[in-house]
Structure formats: structure tokens, C-alpha cells
Amino acid sequence: MHFTINGTAYTAEPDIRTSLLDLLREHLGLTGSKKGCDHGQCGACTVLVNGRRINSCLSLAVMHQDDEITTIEGLGTPEDLHPLQAAFVKHDGYQCGYCTPGQICSAVGMLDEVKKGWPSHVSETLGDVEFNDGEISERMSGNLCRCAAYPNIVDAIRDVAEAKA
């Protein structure tokens, strides 16, 4: 099967039992995506598939024929950080760092959802979603952080969202 990861074309024949997360971590050496629970409960494995955020542990690799997958490694490098990566550093939006790649991939997907006008559980209306801290917290609640950098994660995402606006 064929798919693209971070702009590079791959051909692979994964075991039908292999999750997208295990394909990345165990077969392709892309260990930036983390395994925290393998149950879709913690969000540490979040990657972008065709621009949308998913829990890669809940998705089988064989389901991704021709998909464009973006992982944390595809967003930026230590020398050339993505704006969200830079904002996470500036605002200390992490401590141990294990949930961080998932948080950042999730934030990229989340901001795109907001741009498209998708409402969330806390939105007052279905259209013209007002973007505020409550929306960030709600939409980022699928990504657990036991170090609890949540207030700093909100600061980091707000910074980037405001700069874009």
C-alpha cells in the first residue's frame, strides 16, 4: 500500500493488526507520536490524516491507502519550529513532554476546525463560533496532560490563534 508521511511517499505492507501509531513508532522510526494508552483515551498519539486530527492508536495502518499523514516530525524541527511548537516552548505548554506532540498536532487540527466554523460542546451558537479560552479548553480536552500544563497550553494556542487572526 502507498501513503505519504510528512511529504515523503512510503510503500509498505503492514500486518493487518498494526495500528497507524505502531506503524509510525515501531516500523518507520517516527517515535514523535506517543503511545500513552493505546485505547484512544489520552490523545498522545494524535496525528493529522488529510488535515484532520485522529488518534492514530485507534486506526489500523491498512486503512490509510493514499492518505497524507502529518506527524509532529512534519510540523517543524528544533532549528525551524512551527509557530505552535514555538508557542509551546515560550509558554511552557509541557513539562515531561510525552503528551506534547499529540497536543500540538491536536491544536493544529483544532484551529482548522474552528476556522471552518465547526461548533463545540461549549459553543453558544452553531454558526459564527466565538473563539475564546473556553473553546480552546473544551476542544483540547481529548489530550490529557498529567503534568497539567493546561493553562500554559491554552496560552500558547491563544497566542498563535490571535497572531493568525
Binding site: G32, E73, V89, Y94, P101
Partner: peptide, 21 residues
């Protein structure tokens, strides 16, 4: 000051125990 290892953590380049090749 920002964490020294911050750029590694936010780019997925910090290596945790199960990740050694």
C-alpha cells in the same frame, strides 16, 4: 527562561525509554 530541552520535546525528537532503535 524557556526549558533547554524544549525544542526537542515539541518536535518529537526527545527519546523516551521505548523509543531507542
Amino acid at each position: 527562561l524557556d526549558r533547554k530541552e524544549g525544542p526537542l520535546k515539541v518536535t518529537g525528537q526527545a527519546t523516551y525509554s521505548a523509543e531507542y532503535q
